[in-house]
Amino acid sequence: MELRTSPADTPAPRTSAPLLDVEHARVGYELDGRLQVAVEDVSFAIHPGEHVMLLGPSGCGKSTLLKTIAGFIEPAGGSIRLNGRTDLSPGPDRAVVFQEFDQLFPWFPVERNLTYPLRVNGRSKADAARIAAEYLDLMGLSHAADRYPHQLSGGMKQRVAIARAMALEPVLLLMDEPFGALDAQTRSRLQRELHEVARSAEATILFVTHSIQEAVYIGHRVVVLGTPPSTVVEILDVAHLSDPAAPEFTDAMRHLRSLLSADDSTAESATFE
């Protein structure tokens, strides 16, 4: 077996301190005044420049965990530290790309969708315009700068959303199944683009997905969650895998699939390795 796996607690093979440190976090959401625990106990770390994928069956709490890190939800237990800080109210240092197409401001043309958040965060008009142009170009959107969001296709909207989030130059880019609602063709094209852009921009990304292929393709490491209330099943290093045609890539996918299909017995999955 070529696969290198590491338990959650062991530091990543990096020398720098973790950017995000999730320790025994317990997260959930309020439903009818009661806390629905989605994630029982999860620990992992993200170092600068890393692309960490949260993979798990639907309902495993991966999106809830991401929203907690984004600051929309208070953690119910454990700790989440961003550069050592635990006060995590929502902010542009953790820019989010959502799954929904209607995350753009419909009343702004594409360009203003990028410049407005920059202006809110204190950039000068000229700076904002320059940065927006740069990221629009990076995402291949320069020709659509003057269009309104409703004039764009779903794939274009997600590109704008990614450009908007990246333009904010967040310390951690949070992506909540951004390609989940796209058709297969557009999806694989955007995956490719993100793969390129994210590597060249050296962005640090936490990416939620339920697609095994996406996880292996984009990620450096894949954090696999079990069924809710979930725990970490395994953390898989896939940093060296970027060619979907390579046999190692297929092996990693098969391994992840087997982890996910053994879904309702997390204990069993944990002892799998």
């Binding site: 929309f72 902010g91 542009p92 929904e100 965060n121």
Partner: peptide
């Protein structure tokens, strides 16, 4: 109002 757009608003620091 679409909750996503409100979440975006908070996320960009409004």
């Amino acid at each position: 109002v679409n909750p996503t757009i409100m979440a975006v608003g908070r996320n960009i620091g409004l």
